[in-house]
């Protein structure tokens, strides 16, 4: 193969010494953008992921929604199909965020991450790229499902659709950041699955998605107190309350158990998102031990 010995362009070693990498935040943004774009390309090149992401929540919603509608009574004027709608949206976002961030583990095992970690841009583009890329996929998927639901006429949010989209985006970012917190120190995807079943799924279940958050009145049992307290401590519960409100603006939820005000819900969602991002950032910039798992 003679072509291998063709002359190369002359090297310019002085080029790299001139600009300080720390000053070039633009390069970091470009790198983050590229990593986010890569998430998209990879997602659409894996057909089964696309199918699973759309069909699974739909299946969940229809099966649980219709199956449990007879056994379900207490959420204001909502039947279970409607009650479960915000939960399904959260599930779509959660699942997609999990599958996007789980790829960090694969990236590391397959070696792609090594090249990213030794690049002069530093760590933050990895976090921003992964979270933004994953969140965008999750958000669009939730939108797709939402469009389907609006078409059927299960919900008619009207103008509240705009804050609804904003809230979904925020939740998507929070979920991806959470996914990164779990995935970054992991050596294997098995470990991630364990955390997912023990931590992330209960978090979803205990946010008023699947059953209403019990009211803590005088007649509440000890079990209801514990459950109610846990669900109130879960930031996702607040996002779900607001999501439900925005999906069904016609219905007054103030009388139906747990319903903090909109500003409280938004504030807690924003704070939780920021905290999750900060924690992910701390984790990624800290330990160097996980870098060399190859």
């Amino acid at each position: 193969m003679n072509s291998l010995s063709k002359p190369i362009e002359k090297q310019h070693p002085e080029r790299s010494a001139m600009t300080a990498p720390a000053e070039r935040a633009g390069d970091g943004m470009a790198a983050a953008w590229m990593l986010a774009k890569r998430e998209w390309v990879r997602f659409f090149r894996q057909r089964n992921r696309v199918t699973a992401a759309v069909v699974q929540p739909l299946l969940f919603w229809v099966l649980f929604g219709t199956g449990l509608s007879g056994a379900f009574q207490s959420a204001g004027e909502l039947d279970f199909l409607k009650f479960f709608l915000p939960g399904t949206l959260a599930l779509i976002v959660l699942f997609t965020a999990i599958f996007s961030t789980i790829s960090v583990i694969e990236d590391r095992r397959e070696g792609f991450m090594q090249a990213v970690l030794v690049a002069p841009v530093g760590r933050w583009p990895v976090l921003v790229g992964k979270v933004m890329g994953g969140a965008a996929i999750a958000w669009v998927q939730a939108l797709f499902f939402l469009a389907l639901v609006l078409l059927i006429g299960t919900a008619a949010p009207g103008w509240s659709l705009i804050p609804l989209l904003g809230l979904l985006a925020l939740v998507a970012v929070a979920m991806c950041a959470l996914g990164m917190i779990v995935a970054w120190p992991m050596e294997s995807t098995q470990g991630f699955h364990a955390i997912m079943m023990l931590g992330l799924m209960p978090m979803w279940l205990l946010s008023g998605t699947f059953f209403p958050i019990p009211a803590l009145g005088a007649d509440a049992s000890v079990g209801q107190w514990i459950l109610g307290a846990m669900m109130r401590a879960n930031p996702l519960s607040y996002s779900m309350v607001e999501l439900r409100r925005l999906l069904f603006p016609q219905i007054d939820f103030s009388a139906s158990g747990f319903s903090p005000s909109s500003p409280v819900c938004w504030a807690i969602t924003v704070i939780a998102t920021v905290l999750a991002l900060m924690l992910a950032w701390r984790l990624m910039s800290g330990s160097r031990k996980v870098d060399v798992i190859v």
Binding site: G111, A115, V118, V121
Partner: peptide, 28 residues
């Protein structure tokens, strides 16, 4: 430094061109 790792650092789902563009973005 330019590094060629023992375990490949290529994204298998991306084309050769896209992989190199990725690298380009990381180095500005």
């Amino acid at each position: 430094i330019g590094i060629v790792f023992q375990s490949p650092s290529l994204d298998k789902k991306l084309t050769v061109d896209e992989n190199i563009a990725c690298q380009g973005a990381l180095y500005g």
